[in-house]
């Protein structure tokens, strides 16, 4: 499907040059940020990744026992939680959770204390003044209010 096909797909229409404009807007923003890449970086990336993924053989790594135990505990805890809390009348996203956990397990060095903190991080408390400013700027909704009350 090319861009002109997309203009009429399912009866929807969109402003002329919409995708070109949005690409230009994205580009302008990036240029304002001052970030650059080497010339033709994106053109060469595909070949680089293809090469890397085909040359990568499966390597068995020694996992430090500390991380192996930590990962096992996390897996067990999450598994139990999923089992206990889940609605067993339908199969829900536990398979994806397991895929994600499997992904984490492939690189145990990835699971650090900070990672765990990140996932279970408490929101910073707001002082009253900041809270009022915040509520003035944002639309009030119960979900937001309940987090602070």
């Amino acid at each position: 499907m090319n861009q002109s096909d997309r203009h009429t797909k399912e009866g929807f229409s969109l402003p002329d040059q919409y995708f070109e404009q949005s690409a230009k807007q994205m580009l302008r923003r990036i240029q304002e940020e001052g970030f650059e890449t080497p010339a033709n970086y994106f053109d060469a990336l595909e070949a680089k990744i293809h090469q890397k993924k085909t040359s990568k053989t499966k390597v068995f790594r020694l996992i430090p026992i500390k991380w192996a135990s930590a990962a096992a505990v996390v897996l067990l805890a999450v598994g139990s939680w999923v089992f206990l809390m889940g609605d067993h009348s339908e199969s829900f996203s536990e398979e994806n959770e397991l895929v994600y956990l499997e992904y984490l397990m492939t690189d145990p060095s990835f699971i650090t204390e900070q990672d765990l903190e990140f996932y279970f991080e408490e929101e910073e408390e707001m002082d009253d003044e900041t809270l009022f400013e915040y509520l003035e700027e944002e639309e009030l909704d119960w979900e937001t209010l309940e987090e602070f009350i």
Partner: peptide, 15 residues
């Protein structure tokens, strides 16, 4: 970078 590269990257969108 890349000024021209963005425009050509979005010719195909697959679900």
């Amino acid at each position: 970078m890349t000024a021209a590269s963005l425009n050509n990257k979005y010719d195909y969108f697959l679900s």
